[in-house]
């Protein structure tokens, strides 16, 4: 797994961004960027090269699903791996995310091992 890539972490809760950053740092990732909702994430994606997006679903302004659809419709990021990390775990949520092109899906609460396993699959 290439840990030199730039990762964008999107969650409206600073707590979750902090937990994910801690896990990613333990895995060796150093190049981490944060956004607190989909709108801020989209602005970052317009100005920076991002190699992996890890996003919550339920956020104000622009949800993670809306962000995913914009990413997949864009020329620059349509192939960028997108990991949804969310408490929205009902079947319809998963179906919508898969149909929108999510790379993988982690349900909160999660362990560090669960994040590591999903990243291994996405980035292999």
């Amino acid at each position: 797994m290439d840990t030199s890539i730039k990762v964008l972490i999107v969650d409206d809760f600073a707590t979750m961004r902090r937990i994910l950053k801690n896990i990613l740092k333990q895995l060796g990732f150093k190049n981490l960027v944060e956004a607190d909702d989909g709108t801020s994430a989209w602005e970052i994606l317009q100005g920076q090269s991002i190699d992996l997006i890890i996003s919550d679903w339920n956020m104000p302004k622009m949800t993670g699903l809306e962000l995913l659809k914009k990413v997949r419709a864009s020329d620059n990021h349509k192939r960028t791996p997108f990991l949804m990390v969310t408490a929205e775990a009902q079947k319809q949520n998963v179906i919508e995310a898969v149909q929108a092109g999510v790379s993988n899906y982690v349900v909160k609460p999660f362990t560090a091992e669960a994040i590591s396993d999903k990243l291994e699959k996405i980035l292999k």
Binding site: F13, T15, N58, A87, A89, Q90, V107, K108, P109
Partner: peptide, 15 residues
Amino acid sequence: DAVGELTNMISGQAR
């Protein structure tokens, strides 16, 4: 912030 996220996760898991 952490309490908000814990509440969110409890809700999601229960739902």
